[in-house]
């Protein structure tokens, strides 16, 4: 019963935090709106080009709708996620509880067993934290295995065609909104993705890596069904954390297999779907991937939020702040 009380208190606390954060964000957005509209009205009669009455310059537009809302919430949302992931990776502890492994730490390449809430050595791929890493590891960085693996999913998201839309708009402001003046215009020569950003063409390789992560996280979900992570030798059961970790790779799969590069590789690169048996299979695959692809933005956000939530759940369980209801 005590645990139930703690759980209820934790849920209420999280709800207060979410509602409080939402209200704070809403107030911030409202104030930002006022400031932007005030600035827009100040410049309304200025900087009119003679050609069609259009405004030029950064942020200049004749739009009267709240075009800035989407870049603002996506920018803040992603920023919040990045801050949380960095914080969580920086901790280097409380990423394991019972049989649950936080997805931010999976796969565990090396484990520093001296850290509280670290994974057991048996669940790391290469054993204990080696001396050769310590030799090159920055002294101000805690020995956190998350730093060794986060580049994979990060690279996939950063080169994703949806994320490109949002961060080019939000962070690069190129442009911040449709028919809104971009941050850099002439005489700075715009090159798009033909020069520095030509690396975006590597997206399909990051997709291969992301597929590997789905396999790994699916394995973690399977491990979460065994008491203390003892696969086949322990008792089979299920806990709230198992459900959280089972949902995680499913949501990540909806995002990863709706990827534009995936859509191209499974069938989009053909220009004749009819004909051979293989072509027809690829056509059917392409249609299914296209369905996911149409919802790519939705799945990108849901899966990203769920990864963060999974880490929070495992962390709170490991810290003893919340109790994991399970059948063991």
């Amino acid at each position: 019963m005590d645990n139930l009380v703690i759980f209820v208190i934790a849920v209420v606390a999280v709800a207060i935090l979410v509602i409080g954060g939402g209200v704070t964000l809403a107030v911030a957005i409202y104030q930002a709106n006022r400031l932007i509209l005030a600035a827009a009205s100040l410049t309304q009669s200025e900087d009119m080009s003679s050609d069609g009455g259009h405004k030029s310059g950064f942020g200049q537009t004749m739009r009267k709708d709240r075009w800035w809302f989407e870049p603002l919430w996506t920018g803040l949302g992603f920023l919040f996620f990045v801050i949380y992931v960095n914080w969580a990776a920086f901790q280097g502890e409380h990423y394991w509880h019972g049989s649950y492994l936080s997805p931010l730490y999976s796969p565990v390449l090396f484990v520093d067993i001296a850290r509280v809430g670290a994974a057991p050595v048996g669940h790391s791929l290469f054993g204990v934290w080696p001396d050769w890493i310590n030799a090159i590891w920055p002294p101000f960085f805690p020995t956190s295995p998350a730093w060794l693996i986060l580049a994979g999913p990060l690279a996939f998201r950063l080169t994703c065609y949806y994320y490109r839309k949002f961060y080019y708009r939000t962070y690069f402001m190129s442009p911040p909104g449709c028919a809104v003046g971009p941050f850099s215009t002439q005489p700075i020569q715009y090159k798009g993705e033909t020069a520095l950003f030509i690396f975006q063409n590597l997206h399909r390789f990051t997709w291969y890596v992301a597929c590997g992560y789905i396999a790994i996280l699916s394995w973690d979900a399977f491990v979460s069904l065994w008491e203390s992570g003892a696969v086949f030798s322990g008792r089979l059961g299920i806990g709230v954390g198992s459900i959280v970790l089972l949902v995680n790779p499913i949501l990540l799969a909806t995002y990863t297999f709706g990827c534009h590069s995936c859509r191209h590789l499974v069938g989009g690169n053909m220009n004749r779907f009819s004909g051979s048996f293989v072509s027809r299979i690829r056509f059917n695959l392409w249609k299914r991937v296209s369905w996911l692809n149409q919802r790519h933005m939705l799945f990108a956000w849901i899966s990203m939020i769920w990864v963060g939530f999974s880490d929070i759940y495992v962390r709170l369980c490991s810290m003893g702040i919340i109790y994991d209801f399970n059948t063991w």
Partner: peptide
């Protein structure tokens, strides 16, 4: 110049025929 497009999808947003120009 396909590389000059940086996928900000405004073309898709304004298309009156709802063509999935970008995707």
């Amino acid at each position: 110049g396909s590389g000059f497009c940086n996928i900000t999808r405004c073309c898709t947003d304004v298309c009156p025929e709802n063509i999935g120009i970008t995707d």
